[in-house]
Nucleic acid binder design. Structure first.
Lengths: 112, 112
DNA sequence: TTTATTCATTGTATGTTTACGATAAGTGTT
DNA sequence: AACACTTATCGTAAACATACAATGAATAAA
């Protein structure tokens, strides 16, 4: 019983949780950051910047691909990765909505 | 070798990844949402709203406690949980900063 | 056609997460 | 003191995540 029981929760929460999980690793944050500052990057270039093995970086790229945060284009012997801006924007918008849904209730003082 | 190699990445990325991981489960999102709309909640009340067992909800509460997103006050036989607004605000601010650091480079058209 | 380059995938080891039932530990009640 | 109530923790099990070396597959270069 390790799998999250998705059917028990709202679609919105499940989607946001899945996106959050993708941002829950420093290497994946680095990849997104690098891709946001360059039109595209090859796997090799990313491996050069990220202090992990080629196969591990490739795995992280797969995770980001799977949820649609990045895109792959094969070009000869190499793979070109680009950022999926629409998906990233969606995450930021969802966070904003979440923030706006919670923060209005914020009290003047905290408890702890 | 399953542990994230924290020393290989920036403090900022490690902190943001840890916070993201806490938001990466629908049950924990529910807890934060409920606590944002009520001054405090007992464990029992949260268990009533969340479709998981008492011990599992308690575990999620511990995770949120550990990173400082919520606070516990013992009151007689029960535990009162409250939201740590400062910590939640910090997450939203970090996301905003991340967004601002990435989005300026957004091109007019996407690749895929 | 060999050889090198690039990258995904496979195999493997280990640690973590999710989940529940059962139990323990505390408080309040009778 | 005995009982019920609330909650944390322990024990357990299965799935998932992290990481690397090795291998495979495809392209480019010699």
């Amino acid at each position: 019983m390790a799998k999250i029981q998705k059917d028990l929760f709202s679609k919105k929460d499940v989607e946001y949780a899945a996106l959050s999980k993708c941002l829950a690793h420093p290497a994946r944050l680095m990849i997104l950051d690098i891709l946001s500052k360059h039109k595209d990057r090859t796997c090799k270039e990313l491996v050069f910047d990220i202090p992990l093995s080629q196969s591990t970086v490739s795995k992280h790229l797969n995770d980001l691909l799977a949820i649609g945060l990045i895109c792959r284009k094969v070009s000869g012997a190499q793979s070109l990765y680009t950022l999926e801006w629409n998906k990233l924007t969606r995450f930021f918008e969802l966070t904003n909505r979440l923030s706006k849904g919670m923060m209005p209730h914020r009290p003047k003082r905290n408890c702890c």
